[in-house]
Every structure is written in structure tokens, then in C-alpha cells.
Design a protein around this nucleic acid. Structure first.
Lengths: 252, 252
DNA sequence: TAACGAATGTTCGTTTATGTTCCTTTTCGC
DNA sequence: GCGAAAAGGAACATAAACGAACATTCGTTA
């Protein structure tokens, strides 16, 4: 959809700065304003930018969220983790994403991906990805949990089982020293388990704090995971185990 | 939407500070007050700011929507319809509500009800009722339709069939002269049909304009409906039919 | 090598945003 | 309530921005 390298960069710049100007971009890329206008028209036509006289602004809603969240997420390095995870997901993939701020961070990094099919039980992810016009969003059914806008319940897991995903992007509450992924909520565990069962590739996003926390329920072992995205080195033993399990560890 | 850079920023500033002044903005952007006035007028016209002498004040997100909606809804009498419908639903009932602004209006009138169980395929209704802490909200699964925040698809109807409701509150696109309820969307029709099947009492909310519109798909007949809430008298023939069908008509 | 298409530049008539002027409306002290 | 001062708004002029049509460049393909 972005038919040239400029458009992709313009989009990033607009999301970062909130706005871009025709003149500014023309100077930056050393092209005529007419060329920039064509780029902006294309981006506006596909709903990724909003055209205004003299330039364009980021589609409403997205920037604010990005701005407010970015600070919080950067503190824990979640954004870097999310970025790497998103980069390993190709366009046109089918993806399941569960509840959690880590997965929400990944959703933000997927705004420029094209033709994704995203299934989620996280209402926030649905809202974030609604800004990506080429992304098909499927919500699982179930009860709305107000604390985190998650959709939980047996029905959710049932619904997940009806799909087959290229990828699932999962967050968890904690990772035990022996490599077990842990969570607090039994219903969410059911959902995660179902997603793992139905995914060709399982990705887990977990910032360093997850290695220090404890939680009572086991989702699965890192042995069942294909790629772990994190921002710190694993203990020697755990890293060795991951090597044995054939679990790729991406630590930024 | 926002037709220039300023308007977007003015809106953000107004939300942050609570208010903005014409003079302040004129100085900030180094434009004449007339230009700022034009910006504020635009923003006020689209209901995103409230104009006051000397500047404008932000209307908080939720209040704004409610306010905007209320004005629009009052015009067509939707609020009165919704109020009567809500009054006939007791506390602690289980209710299904489908897509449509009429049903959203009912949701607003249910904010003070207690211990409701509401199942819906309408994300807006979920948001509205999230403000009612005693209300349990269950979302059906399916694809998110961005135009109206509806959740549609075969999965949605499947999920509805798993419940048994005390009431369903349904909107439709049109009501034919012979009493058939009509809609534009085949998937939404499936959902409505499933809800009717699984409800002890079927309520339809429809303002007068629905009697003038046409739509291609049949949901059911008013014969299958228990109560119709509307804001105009039915034709003599239709009223007679409703009497025969044992369909109560509540016209405000 | 010629034909072609995509991307960009160029030109020019049209649209939009803004400033200016002037008159009306609102606010506020009396 | 009354009148001055501030704010608002309509109408017009102008400069900037826009976009359509055509020209040019450059790589690709027949």
C-alpha cells in the first residue's frame, strides 16, 4: 500500500510528531511539493493520515495513546521488545494476541503492517489496531473485565480453538526460574493454552520484571514457545535449557 | 474533521487545560483572532468543543458524546422510546442488545439498573454500560466492524444461541407496511434471529423514520415480537394486525 | 532500439485559508 | 436597564495551497 519509501517514513514521522508539512517534507526529501502532495493523498486515501491544508496530521487518537504510553513503556523497555516482535511478523499473517500491556505494545508496532488478521481478547488491542485500516480484527466472545478491558471466560477459549493462527503473541504475569510461564487468572490461562495449541509459531513478550515476579498458575513451559522476546539476559541455566528446547531468545 | 493543524492542537490544549482563549491562541499561533474564531467555530460545530465568549471549553469525552448524542437522539424521539423500553426491563434481568443507535439509547437508560446481565455484539453498548458497576457485560465474538463498532459474523450468531435471555432489545433498519422487520446486513439478521429464538420476551425499538425506510432482508415479523416501542401511531391496518398478533405497541 | 510505464517535475486554473474592514452582538460596570 | 468596551461574525481581497493535465526522465521489456 505504501508505494514508496517516503510514504512509510512520512507515516512514521507523522505518528511521532503528530503532524507533517508539505513544504517541510519537500525540503527533507528534495522533491517538489507536488510529489509530497501525491504521497499525502495516497496516505490519506488509505486512511493512514488525515490531510489538512499545508500538510497532514496523524489519524486522531493514535498519537495521544502513543505519546502517553510511550513514556511508560520505554521505562520498562517494552517498546523495544515489542518492536522486535512486530518485525518478525510478516504482512498478511494471522495473529492471536492476549491480554497484557506487553501485547498492547506489540499491537502499536503493528500499525504499519498490512492485511493482518488479528484475533484478540483484549479490547485495547482492538482499539489500537482499529487505526490500521487494512487490519481485520476479530474479538473473542466472553465477559468484559473492566480492570484491563480483557474479555475472559470459557467461551473465549472455546472461540480461540476454532482458529488456526500463524503466530500467537502472548504476555504472561511471570516467568519462573525453570522456564515455566505463570499467570494469576485461571480463565486467561485457558485462553493462552488454547492459543498455543492452535498456533504455528508461539511468541512470548516479557520484560525483565517478569523474571522476578511469581504467579500461581502455569500456562506452559518455555519449551513450548518458539521465540521469547525480552530485554535482559537469561540465567545461564535457563538459557541452556532454551537452547535444548530449541526456543529462540531475542534479548535487546 | 480537523481542517488544519491548529484545530487538532487546540483540541488537545483545550482537553488538557480545560479551556482556551481566543486571544491566547491568536498570540500562540501568530494569527488574527478572526482566524482562531473560525477554528473554534468549526470545532464547536462538530461538537468537540463548547464555545464561550472569549474562547472555548472542553467538554469531557464521555459527556460530550452523551451530549452530542442526546441532541441528535432527542430530535428523533429516540430517547423517549429508549426510556420506556428501559423501564419495562427489571433489575437483575438478562438482556441481549444488538447493533444500532436505538439500542445504544436504551443502554444509556439502563445505567441505573442493577445486576443486569447484558449480552451484546455492540462495542458502544459495552462502553456505555461499563459505567454501570453492577452490570455484567458479555460481548459476543466476531469481526469488529469499524463503521458502527459492531461485532458481526457467523461466530456471533453461534455464540448468541448458547444463551437464554429474559429480554432481547432489538433495533432494525426498517419496518415494512405488513409488519416485517427489515435490515441491510445479512450477518446482523442472523444475529437478530438467533436472539429472538433464545429470548423469553422480544422488544423492538424503532423510531418513526423506520416506517418510511426500506431494506432488503427480513429479520422476522412483528408477530414474533412481544413489545414494539416507537414514537408514532401505526397505520390502522398494522395496528389491527398487531392486536391480532398479541404484539403490544407502546407509542410515545 | 523502440515502446512502455512508473515516478517525478512543470504549468496553470481552481480552491482554500487568512487578514482586513465594518457592522452586530454580548458582556459588564454603572 | 444603559452604554461603553470587548467579542463575534459576515463580506471581501489576496496570497498560499491544491490538483489536474501534460512533459520529462529513467529503467524495463519486447
Amino acid at each position: 500500500m505504501a508505494s514508496n519509501f517516503r510514504q512509510k517514513e512520512i507515516l512514521e514521522l507523522a505518528r511521532k510528531e503528530g503532524k507533517v508539512t508539505v513544504d517541510g517534507l519537500a525540503e527533507m526529501y528534495d522533491v517538489t511539493v507536488q510529489t509530497i502532495r501525491r504521497d499525502l493523498s495516497d496516505l490519506a486515501d488509505s486512511g493512514r493520515l488525515q490531510r489538512v491544508h499545508g500538510g497532514a496530521i496523524a489519524t486522531s487518537g493514535v498519537v495521544n495513546i502513543l505519546y502517553e504510553e510511550r513514556r511508560r513503556l520505554n521505562e520498562t523497555g517494552k517498546r523495544e521488545i515489542a518492536e522486535r516482535c512486530a518485525k518478525s511478523i510478516p504482512d498478511s499473517a494471522s495473529v492471536f494476541m492476549n491480554i497484557g500491556t506487553s501485547t498492547e505494545a506489540v499491537a502499536r508496532e503493528l500499525l504499519d503492517h498490512e492485511n493482518l488478521l488479528v484475533v484478540t481478547n483484549n479490547l485495547n488491542i482492538a482499539h489500537i489496531l482499529a487505526a490500521n485500516p487494512t487490519c481485520k480484527i476479530i474479538l473473542t466472545g466472553g465477559e468484559l473485565r473492566r480492570t484491563d478491558s480483557g474479555i475472559v471466560g470459557g467461551l473465549t477459549a472455546e472461540m480461540v480453538k476454532q482458529f488456526k493462527f500463524d503466530y500467537s503473541v502472548l504476555g504472561c504475569s511471570a516467568i519462573d526460574a525453570d522456564g515455566d510461564l505463570l499467570d494469576f487468572d485461571d480463565q486467561e490461562v485457558m485462553v493462552s493454552k488454547a492459543a498455543i495449541q492452535r498456533s504455528r509459531q508461539v511468541m512470548v513478550v516479557a520484560d525483565s520484571i517478569k523474571f522476578l515476579r511469581k504467579a500461581p498458575l502455569t500456562i506452559c513451559s518455555l519449551a513450548d514457545v518458539d521465540i521469547l522476546f525480552t530485554n535482559c539476559a537469561l540465567t545461564k541455566e535457563l538459557q541452556a535449557n532454551c537452547d535444548n528446547w530449541n526456543t529462540t531468545v531475542v534479548a535487546s
